[in-house]
Design a binder for these strands. Sequence first.
DNA 1: GCGGCGGCTGATTGAGGAATCAACCCGCCG
DNA 2: CGGCGGGTTGATTCCTCAATCAGCCGCCGC
Lengths: 237, 237
Amino acid sequence: MAQSKTVTENGSRESERRRTILRAAIDVFARKGYHGCRIADVAKEAGVAYGLVYHYFKNKDELLETVFDTGWSGFVTRVRAVVEGEGSLAQKVQGVVDVAFEAYRVDPRAVKVLILEIARSPAGSRINRQTAFVDAIRLSSELFAQAKEAGELREDLDPLLGSALLFGAIEMGLTAFVTGLADSRDASALERAKAQIADSFLHGVLAAASPGAEAGTWKPEKSSEKSATKSKAPKRT
Amino acid sequence: MAQSKTVTENGSRESERRRTILRAAIDVFARKGYHGCRIADVAKEAGVAYGLVYHYFKNKDELLETVFDTGWSGFVTRVRAVVEGEGSLAQKVQGVVDVAFEAYRVDPRAVKVLILEIARSPAGSRINRQTAFVDAIRLSSELFAQAKEAGELREDLDPLLGSALLFGAIEMGLTAFVTGLADSRDASALERAKAQIADSFLHGVLAAASPGAEAGTWKPEKSSEKSATKSKAPKRT
DNA sequence: GCGGCGGCTGATTGAGGAATCAACCCGCCG
DNA sequence: CGGCGGGTTGATTCCTCAATCAGCCGCCGC
């Protein structure tokens, strides 16, 4: 933690405490959830006095907000770099997936908080966190829009939807690890998941039929005709 | 708990109140979120006295729990029907997607609560809601396991992951509507999304290349070599 | 050594809200 | 007619925390 000496040490010392608290907040939020923990928990985790938390953060909400800002902005920056960089659609998609999984590898608990607490948190506090995901989706939808013009993308796919599906797949893939469905201590599992997500997203989950056959086989043939009828009166409450 | 009468009309009258409250709870939760509302809000919405809520539900948490049970069990039942029914993988995938979207069409606010409040809610109360999604994913992973044996599925895809990706795509697709990213009053948008999700999931988002060309091109060629290096020190907090 | 300043402390306060409860209304039975 | 009981009411209680604040170190300059 003392590695921050690099900068002016008086400024960094103050900052060090702040970061300690932030770190503690992430850990506690990840463990008990935002609503499930007290400021006292954060203070204890950080090993500081209760009041100090309020010296660095206006209130509990700003604490979460800050966790969000630091974590999410870093993610978005990297995604933007991928989107605006060079490469084919396939490469960029893989790049976005990699960014997400790398973030998870580096700091799983921070990712857990982002996914569980922030991305989906209902319009509680002043900044609507819903925008978070929306922004990311909008951003990468440009990727798909460009790809579509370049003819890399299927004709009938809405760029916004495509982008949403990508993030949905990534998020649920990560959620599988976050919730323990998959074993996240297994590094190779992470690697495999990473590759499979991008591949499945790009090429679909169906068996790659013998070269040539499949490519010609599938066309927008409305595979839904049967199933559409089956949903009779769902979700009565 | 004399509501076991179910059919007899004196039983139904009592139950009617209960259902009124439940309905109000769904609406209020959808509007302000579980933590963002007071029991008083639910009571007011239902047009009943504050105390009556506690006559029918042990506490606030049980209220949410009940919203969850009713909504989710219906969904899972329908998904199970699809999974255990007849048809190809493609048809079943489309079926699962249809079930989800139909549920949204019938009762968007209930779906919103399920997605926003319950599915991702951190391990707060006694029943771990995390299991909800996990169960559904496990259930439909059988689908993929079978398909894999039948050779319908790509060799290298883990059934569990495939199932997770499907739900991720569905969920994020719905989230787009829930959050207003997409216009949910546009019925045809829903229809299109439904079809595109299943199609993209099955066949991928890439343009169907000229027969032969694309199919031969792609192989597990680790397209990530470039992007892997780019994430230097991600998500520093 | 001394005063003062900024980071730091943690008991105290106050509000918000979950849960309780005593009383009320009204239909029914004796 | 009177009293019983379950559904219903909403004021009251009680408790949990977020947020405050009055003061305590320990360092630095004088």
